[in-house]
Amino acid sequence: MAQIELAGIDRSFTVGDSRVHALSALSLAIEAGEYVAIMGPSGSGKSTLLNLLGLLDRPDAGHYRLEGRDVTTLSADEQAAVRRSRIGFVFQSFHLVPRLSAAENIALPLTLAGIAPAERERRVARALRDFGLEERARHRPDELSGGQRQRVAIARATIMQPALLLADEPTGNLDRHTGEEVTQLLEALNAAGTTLIVVTHDPAMGRRARRQLMMEDGKLKSDSARQSSRAERPPPAPEPLG
């Protein structure tokens, strides 16, 4: 059984007085621990797909089974619980809470999950160490560099040890060097067993993934997993950070 199974997913939006089909009749299966890049031109539906996978959006039709459980029929609060425990998000614009320090931002999912302060502190301290952010723990986001901000965001996304990590253009707001660092960080997490799904415009970044999904007009145009001709490349070894 695949970790993610999408069957016959439809999602359309009303823009003005016309309906736009962001996703139509999409079926897809992703195994646990995969490294998937979703690519395609603007408006091809890749962000909608990511939002659906992250339970931020509901399909108009079709079924989404996450770890064998049909999550499309869950209530909003049950979906929130699934997001809290199973899914981590990394955004292009980081989405850090500006008034909270790096450590507090990282602790946010633990707070939302109602984990006791002592345990919270222990896990945040370990995350800060793992991501090389110990020196910046008390700094607020506006005092951090772009790379540091994204590292805080990734630390936050993984603090609950989710099974699934969703990244929407994680390097879009970073320069090439910092972007490379962040990509290696995400790949290291994937190597440790977390499923990584990245939406990207960048063909270079897309090529690093073991599986590429090309989207066009709400449909899956190509899926590298179905083209046996392509040899699987091992992920590049992550460099030590900090």
């Binding site: 992250g54 931020l56 909003a76 609060d77 929130a80 619980a81 699934v82 997001r83 809290r84 425990s85 899914i87 998000f89 955004f91 989405h95 809470v97 946010l108 999912p109 939302l112 999950a113 936050r156 609950m160």
Partner: peptide, 16 residues
């Protein structure tokens, strides 16, 4: 608004 969206993505319920 962005912060509220983030909190929801991090698993905050409407009640939270």
């Amino acid at each position: 608004t962005g912060e509220i969206g983030l909190l929801k993505a991090l698993g905050a319920t409407g009640g939270d």
